[in-house]
Simulated assay, not measured.
Amino acid sequence: MKTIFVFYGGPSVEHNVSVNSAKAVLNALNRDKYHVQPVYITKEGVWLRLPEAKEAFENVEQMKRETDGQSIAQSLAAFLTSHDFSDGKTVFFSVLHGTYGEDGGIQGFFETVDVPYVGSGVTASAVCMDKARSNEIMEQNGIPQAKFVVLTRHQLDTQGLDADGIVEKLGLPLYAKPANCGSSVGVVRVTEKEQLLEAVEEALQYDHKIVLEEEIWGRELNVSVIGNESPQGSIPGDFAMETGYFDYELKYKNPDIVPIIPAKIPEDRFCDLANLAARTYEVLGCGGTARVDIFYTEEGELKVNEINTMPGMSDLSMTPVLWKATDGTEYTELLDKLIDWGIDAHAKKKALVRTFE
């Protein structure tokens, strides 16, 4: 049997989101095929390996532990000596969201330990986490998206804010977004030019670089993409909600939001959405799975909003439900596929020539 190490928590503003996702993943993994090994990472970055999870977790508090004063380095040393990671039967499954989990850092650690892992590699994770870089790459490859402006803390401090120029290019309303955050953390909607500086300062609390984007008036549809070299897009999903802006509180703390699967748009557009999502996934070099969020305007235009290389897996998340509706894939089967793709990607990388004499 393979041992699946599931990592969650982490020093990120999305710590709690990660724990909620991990609960679903841990509970859905097939105990007949895997030894399921939880690894909780505290908000301070300390790694704590829990006992093997032979039964499902009833609540997230069961998945957490307190530190006994060890440093991050000490906890990593304890983790690395707690298991034979060269046994050929181990796979890493990160459910870490946002910075630390989706920015290429943890993927680099997995590469160093030389263990197969689920999801995108170092480069794709880093690029997709950085909305500025991913927007620029999508623009270069003809992926339709909102108009945008990139602004750094250094530029603001040394050059000031060209509010007139930004509004002229993007119009109003517009959004200020931290370049390297997720789950709508730090995102501010700006309706008047006089609000722009305050919104920029708020977004810059979460990252030294932000993206300013025009508001696209339309529905934000979710498409899940899975696979490595031959990615497939799911049918689109939507959420029924009264507000026009899907913020953090609504995403994760409102029990009344209702997923609509499939989204209520003409069925002949399903293929267009799936193809655009898969194309975006390919252009950015993703692997395993990702969720692509696409605006569908009143005129029927499609514009990519963003891509998430570690989509939410909580009870309110789209990914497992979308694949159930697309082709009947059950959650446990989906996790099996992700694990197999991680093993395949690792094997292909190991087959590459790494020395030259």
Score class of each variant (00 low, 15 high):
Ala28Pro: 10
Ala345Glu: 02
Thr3Ile: 03
Cys271Ala: 13
Gln232Ile: 12
Ala240Gly: 04
Lys89Leu: 04
Lys264Met: 11
Asp84Arg: 10
Val6Phe: 11
Ser18His: 01
Tyr34Phe: 12
Ser224His: 08
Ser86Ile: 01
Glu299Asn: 06
Ala73Leu: 13
Ser184Asn: 00
Pro266Arg: 13
Asn308Arg: 01
Ser230His: 15
Val25Leu: 05
Arg65Gly: 05
Ile339Val: 15
Ala22Glu: 06
Val304Glu: 05
Lys2Gln: 09
Ala240Lys: 15
Met318Trp: 03
Asn27Ser: 14
Phe5Asp: 02
Leu76Thr: 03
Leu221Gly: 06
Gly288Glu: 06
Val127Thr: 07
Val6Cys: 05
Met241Cys: 13
Glu102His: 02
Val321Tyr: 09
Arg269Ile: 07
Ala126Arg: 00
Phe356Leu: 10
Ala73Lys: 06
Lys23Glu: 15
Thr81Trp: 08
Ala132Pro: 04
His97Asn: 08
Thr123Gly: 06
Gly108Glu: 01
Leu204His: 01
Pro311Ala: 05
Gly227Arg: 15
Tyr175Glu: 09
Glu58Ile: 10
Val19Arg: 08
Ile307Phe: 00
Gln159Trp: 14
Leu151Lys: 10
Gly285Asn: 04
Glu242Met: 10
Trp323Ile: 03
Asn141Lys: 12
Leu352Lys: 14
Glu249Val: 13
Val200Glu: 01
Lys337Gly: 05
Asn228Tyr: 05
Val167Ile: 14
Pro311Ser: 07
Tyr175Trp: 10
Lys131Arg: 09
Gly300Phe: 02
Thr243Asp: 14
Ile216Tyr: 07
Glu61Val: 12
Leu273Trp: 11
Asp103Asn: 04
Ile216Gly: 07
Tyr296Asp: 04
Asn16Pro: 01
Asp340Ser: 11
Val167Thr: 13
Ala290Glu: 01
Leu316Glu: 04
Asn59His: 14
Val188Cys: 13
Asp268Lys: 14
Gly182Arg: 13
Val190Trp: 01
Phe79Gln: 11
Lys43Asn: 14
Gln159Met: 15
Gly104Ala: 04
Met129Ser: 02
Val113Pro: 00
Tyr100Asp: 03
Gln232Asn: 09
Met313Gln: 09
Arg219Ile: 10
Glu215Val: 00
Val283Trp: 11
Gly119Pro: 01
Ser12Ala: 07
Leu204Trp: 01
Leu352Tyr: 00
Gly45Asn: 07
Cys271Asp: 15
Glu198His: 05
Leu174Asp: 03
Val113Lys: 02
Gln37Phe: 10
Glu66Tyr: 08
Ile41Glu: 09
Val187Gly: 07
Asp327Trp: 05
Thr326Ala: 00
Asp327Ile: 06
Met241Ala: 09
Ala132Cys: 14
Asp247Cys: 08
Ser18Asp: 07
Ser86His: 07
Pro144Gln: 06
Leu29Met: 11
Thr355Asp: 09
Thr67Ser: 15
Lys264Arg: 04
Gly237Ala: 01
Gly312Pro: 00
Ala24Thr: 15
Asn275Arg: 12
Ser71Thr: 15
Thr112Asn: 12
Ala345Phe: 00
Glu194Phe: 01
Asp344Phe: 02
Tyr175Phe: 15
Phe295Glu: 02
Phe85Trp: 08
Thr332Ile: 10
Phe92Asp: 03
Ala163Arg: 02
Glu301Leu: 13
Tyr331Pro: 10
Tyr206Gly: 06
Lys89Ser: 05
Gly186Ala: 07
Ala278Gly: 12
Asp238His: 07
Leu170Thr: 04
